[in-house]
Amino acid sequence: MGVDDQVTPTEALLARRQLEQLLIERGRAADAKDADAIVTLHVPGSRDTHGIFDGTIEEFAEYLRQNHYSNGRYGTQRHTISNAVIEFDGPLRARVESYHLAYHRLVLDGQNFDVQIGGRYFDVCEKQTGKWLIAERSVIYDWSRSWPVDPRTPDDERAGHR
């Protein structure tokens, strides 16, 4: 385990920073509900699996466009990322486990919910033409909880529908 012999400590240091930035950019693209931006962060045609969805990243982006990003029941979402453990298979390939704490607002039959999901991403990342991209992503669901939102909550509209 650890840094492959082919990767110098300095290269690995820079690559880890770039990989962490990639994970954060990926979270931001999801939070902006920008399916096009999501695709640019993955290797074209690469696999994205949540178990229940398992296909190419282009198929997943289309699934998001048709469902989560156009259905009024999905409100604000925010992904906070941490705990990136990175192992290199060479200077151009890395396996990355990261944690995320996700917030979702759901609007269901007039009842709003604040929802949290704690999970992890397992990514195989590859450096192609100078840029790190996700070459395979598995999304793991560790836990979840929810609260019905009291409609009297101050400023609730601000969190609601984006």
């Binding site: 029941r73 759901l106 919910f113 929802v115 836990w143 979840s144 909880r145 929810s146 609260w147």
Partner: peptide
């Protein structure tokens, strides 16, 4: 107490 998870809500 455990509450309704995301996957059950949707």
């Amino acid at each position: 107490p455990a509450s309704t998870p995301y996957w059950e809500l949707v």
